[in-house]
Every structure is written in C-alpha cells, then in structure tokens.
C-alpha cells in the first residue's frame, strides 16, 4: 500500500500527536507565553468549560503585540483568533491535510467524538508522518552536511 492509500485510510490518532496545553480565555497573555515556552510549543489552544476549542494563540499572534508590553496582562480572549482548524481524531490524515491547505494553517487541533480538544498537530506532524513512511530515503540523510570538506581527509 502506497503513501496515498495510507493517507486515505490512516486515522489522525495514529500519527505522532503533540500534547495539547489548554488555556482558559480569561488567562493572561503572559501565562500563555510562559506555557508555550515551557512546553516548547508555538501554539496554545483556548478551551471553554466543556473542553471544546474556542480559540488559539500562536507565536504569530505574539509577534503582532510584542511591541505593546501592556498586552501581556490582557486576557487571552482579547488577542486569540477563533480555532477553526479542527479535525476529529478518527478522520483520515487526508482530512487533516485538506484543513491545513484550505485554512493555510500550521496548527490543527485534534478533537474526540464529543468535540473535546485532545491533541495538537500540524505541518510538523505531517512531515513526521511522511518521514515514517520513507525511512530508507529520509532517515539516512546527514543532518548537517557540507558540499565540500574544509580539510583533506587522511594523511
């Protein structure tokens, strides 16, 4: 079975998903920034009381307000954008890819059947998925190679 067939049949939940770090809309931007730093994630998902995603705050949002230090004390809901990039964990990977393309989104929130946010994935998740399908051409690559050696090898 080729990659195309896998994409059509593999559910999103079988991918390597990121742990989702949820935030509440009344939490401050500073709290979200600290969370992103600690979890080494470029995005936090804002959820409501039922655990459903209602917004997201990313590094790109931070870039827009970085020169206004007072905004760090604002509630997240003031600077987040609605979380429209959502995929059900049981839907095929193709659905995730379509959402990323149609919404030009780097992050996609993964939800369960009840609509609760359970994980985060996105562009990097898709790259990891493709890598796992072609290990013999991708995993053999040198990480930091040079075209030419600085010094001659040998004596």
């Amino acid at each position: 079975m080729g990659l195309h067939e896998h994409i059509l049949t593999d559910p999103v939940i079988e991918m390597e998903l990121r742990e989702l770090i949820p935030c509440r809309p009344d939490q401050t931007v500073a709290t979200a920034v600290d969370t992103m730093k600690l979890s080494r994630l470029g995005c936090v998902v804002v959820i409501d009381d039922a655990g459903k995603p209602i917004g997201k705050f990313t590094e790109r949002h931070l870039m827009k307000i970085i020169d206004q230090p007072k905004t760090l004390d604002d509630p997240l809901e003031k600077h987040m954008t609605p979380c429209q990039s959502i995929v059900n964990q049981n839907e095929p990977v193709q659905k995730l890819i379509d959402i990323m393309r149609d919404r030009d989104s780097r992050f996609v929130c993964v939800v369960d059947d009840a609509g609760k946010a359970v994980a985060l994935t996105g562009a990097k998740g898709v790259l990891e998925y493709v890598t796992e399908h072609f290990p013999r051409v991708v995993k053999v690559q040198m990480m930091q190679g040079k075209l030419f050696f600085d010094q001659r090898e040998g004596a």
Partner: peptide
C-alpha cells in the same frame, strides 16, 4: 543549520521532522 539547493528534499524532511 543550513541546506544546499542541490540537496535532496529528503534531507529537508530529515532536518525538520527528526531534527
């Protein structure tokens, strides 16, 4: 980290997905 324009796309995937 850098990549050369003559490198294969597999190398970009390696550096992004694994690195």
């Amino acid at each position: 980290v850098v990549i050369y324009d003559s490198d294969p796309p597999a190398k970009a995937l390696n550096m992004m997905a694994i690195g």
